[in-house]
Design a protein around this nucleic acid. Structure first.
Lengths: 228, 228
DNA sequence: ATCTTTACTTTTTTCGAGATTTGCGTGAAT
DNA sequence: ATTCACGCAAATCTCGAAAAAAGTAAAGAT
């Protein structure tokens, strides 16, 4: 049980292993609290334990895996409080980034944001109609990220963008491990639209409020039983 | 059998090298843009190149060193814009943390903050009197960190504290490489006192304003000539 | 029966060498 | 004189094994 990984015959390098592990984590391929043994991962990726160790260290810096000295790595076992903390920080960063984008963004920012929302809207309606959330969760994740990234893309601060990326991924990882619905809710469709409208209306305070509503709604969803 | 005590035996392990490198970076022992060759560091710490590489990776995740694939590590060569970005983020995090501490903090928070300020005040007056900034910069750094850490210590969010720690160190590293005065200014004494008073007066907005003033003043200081 | 000691197994951490890649200087051709 | 190609030197990256530490289980002592 635990790690189910398809064999990767390509020559796995440090960067590729990092990207693959990251995407797998954020999409919920690992179980919370699961130990990440270097030997198992080494076998799957076809590289040495040193490379695995290096990748896991980078992921631990991103907050995507836990590291304890002399005890190895494991997928963080998150609590509701952890999720709330991450949500609060993401609200702060994304509201700030959106406000700056609203102040600085030109027509290209508006165009990019609108395009990202259009794609997101498309996949979300598809999800709502078909109800096949699990099979389309990855493409939805990508579209959702695109939209929120575009929202702050004109903020003018690379550091703010980097931190937002980091916190966004942590938020997603926490959602996937804590919730039963993989992070997608029908209400999110209207919430995304409200954020878009506030941004295009150049109203930073309203936009911040819509972001807060959007993220906080996730905390009210049904939680998986944390039986251990 | 007797107790085995080998003081200062060069038993450099991964964790100790990481801590040492980090403190050296934050205190300005390396020059901006300097290459961090694993062979040189390996010799200094008496460990293998792999251990050095691992430590440098962790530091790059913290944003304290730059890493480029296949090109190695180097001390980031920062610009005024980088410093401004870091300052803005730190203002955001520290203001938020202070506001939450003001809302949540009890008498213990007040006591700890007051104690930290007392120590900081002591060393700062000593620095102003003797003028020996360079020799005492490390102890001042520690005291300054203690104060700002205590300011947000009652915020109730571990994530916020971790991110603040990270950004604080980056801010300090940038200051030391960009400025001529090692980050200490006489005006900082009054600024720290203003922050303390606003915090004890439980005025989050005033506190945020004083934090902004304190950090922004650093951007006006004399810069080292960035001739490149 | 409970706790401590001890030997063994598993996992993590470190190491040094070999493979790979980059950087730079030399030299020939246009 | 400039450009391009080639090759040597230096550094990075990867690997598998050895060393160290932690976890585990059984035997012995209180």
């Amino acid at each position: 049980m635990g790690i189910e990984l398809e064999p990767d015959k390509q020559q796995s390098t440090s960067a590729s292993v990092y990207e693959d592990m990251r995407s797998r984590l954020v999409v919920g391929r690992f179980k919370a609290g699961e130990r990440l043994r270097s030997e198992v991962l080494r076998e799957h990726y076809g590289c040495s334990a040193s490379t695995i160790r290096e990748v896991l260290f980078r992921l631990s810096c991103d907050g995507l895996v836990d590291f304890v000295d002399q005890k190895g790595f494991r997928v963080p076992h998150v609590t509701r409080d952890d999720l709330r903390e991450v949500a609060e920080i993401r609200i702060m960063l994304e509201s700030e980034g959106a406000a700056r984008s609203i102040a600085n963004g030109d027509i290209n920012w508006e165009a990019g944001l609108t395009a990202a929302h259009h794609k997101l809207r498309h996949i979300e309606h598809k999800l709502r109609t078909t109800g096949q959330i699990k099979t389309n969760i990855e493409v939805w994740c990508a579209a959702e990220w695109e939209f929120h990234q575009n929202l702050i893309s004109a903020c003018g601060s690379n550091l703010l963008k980097e931190m937002h990326r980091s916190v966004y991924d942590r938020f997603r990882l926490h959602l996937l491990t804590l919730l039963t619905d993989y992070g997608f809710r029908e209400r999110a469709i209207a919430e995304h639209e409200a954020i878009l409208k506030a941004a295009l209306a150049r109203d930073p305070d309203l936009c911040a409020e819509k972001i807060r509503i959007h993220l906080m709604k996730n905390l009210e969803e049904p939680f998986v039983d944390a039986a251990e």
